[in-house]
């Protein structure tokens, strides 16, 4: 059975944590949740691959976790509030993870946020449909955000 198509699949750069991903990613998220306990953090750090066997993960999920591929984790059913716990276990700030996921340096990401964040212009849709009629140019909306 092919996976169902959803209207939100059209949003670029976004993995919506829906009921299907929640089902698939249960192991990833329960693994991340386990990192709330210090003894588990230590066990994970001592032997990551071995620790991950405690959870019912697919090979692809295990691989994504070991490689710290945060986007892939989201795609395979991880949720950001959970995967952030893995980042914290590695001693990273959230902004470090955000930079990783967006393919930018932490400095670039921080500068983008200070300048008003990522504009929605050009970031609404993969297919090009559903663009609002009154969209402004990218630079205009950024500067208006900056003023606030």
């Amino acid at each position: 059975m092919a996976p169902a198509q959803h209207d939100y699949d059209d949003i670029p750069g976004t993995f919506v944590f829906d009921a299907e991903r929640s089902r698939q990613g249960y192991g990833i998220n329960m693994f991340c949740m386990s990192l709330m306990k210090d003894e588990n953090r230590k066990a994970f750090k001592a032997n990551e691959a071995e620790y991950l066997k405690r959870f019912n993960l697919t090979p692809a999920q295990t691989d994504a976790i070991l490689k710290r591929d945060y986007n892939r984790m989201l795609e395979l059913g991880g949720n950001i509030y959970f995967t952030a716990k893995l980042g914290a276990t590695d001693g990273h700030s959230f902004q470090h993870l955000a930079a990783l996921m967006t393919g930018s340096s932490q400095q670039e990401y921080a500068a983008m946020m200070l300048a008003g964040g990522r504009s929605v212009e050009g970031n609404r849709t993969r297919s090009g449909k559903n663009k609002p009629g009154n969209s402004k140019s990218k630079s205009k909306s950024k500067s208006s955000a900056k003023r606030k």
Binding site: I11, P12, G13, T14, F15, F17, N71, L74, N79, I80, F94, A98, M101, T102, G103, Y109, M112, M113, G116, G117, R118, S119, V120, N123, S141, S144, A145, K148
Partner: peptide, 14 residues
């Protein structure tokens, strides 16, 4: 938005 490649999105007009 704090997840995925589109993280950092802000829409002040919205």
């Amino acid at each position: 938005q704090i997840s995925g490649p589109r993280a950092g999105l802000i829409n002040s007009k919205w």
